[in-house]
């Protein structure tokens, strides 16, 4: 029995578990909105994007959808990384990398959608 090694937790696991579920529930209505507006955008993505984000509802829901799903996604990738990368140093490095990528992308896309909203 004493040969069994218990993997140390990366702290605050229960909080992440809960936030994963809460963001999942928040994404349900946002996905409905995405699917409904999807066919409109696909028709002519180049021309339609600024017109699309000119509507306040689309700009707000677009920002919420992308930020929430990036948050949900970084929590999800964190779990996958914890499962498949046994080396603790590398594991923490990749988790931080994913968080960094998610945050930078969120900020950039929020600024872009606001700009599209204002000029559209």
């Amino acid at each position: 029995m004493n040969k069994i090694k218990i993997a140390p937790s990366t702290k605050s696991g229960a909080h992440h578990w809960l936030m994963q579920r809460i963001s999942a529930i928040a994404l349900i209505p946002l996905i409905f909105w995405l699917v409904l507006s999807f066919t409109q955008i696909v028709e002519d993505p180049q021309g339609y994007l600024p017109v699309f984000f000119a509507y306040p509802l689309n700009a707000v829901l677009g920002i919420l959808l992308i930020t929430t799903s990036l948050y949900h996604g970084s929590l999800g990738l964190r779990v996958v990384i914890e499962d498949y990368i046994p080396n603790k140093t590398k594991m923490h490095f990749y988790i931080m990398l994913v968080n960094f990528l998610s945050i930078v992308t969120s900020v950039a896309v929020v600024i872009s959608i606001i700009r599209l909203h204002l000029i559209g």
């Binding site: 180049q46 990036l70 896309v109 959608i113 599209l116």
Partner: peptide, 8 residues
């Protein structure tokens, strides 16, 4: 997201 940024 980066497509939207590039596009903007």
């Amino acid at each position: 997201s980066w497509y939207i940024v590039y596009y903007t």
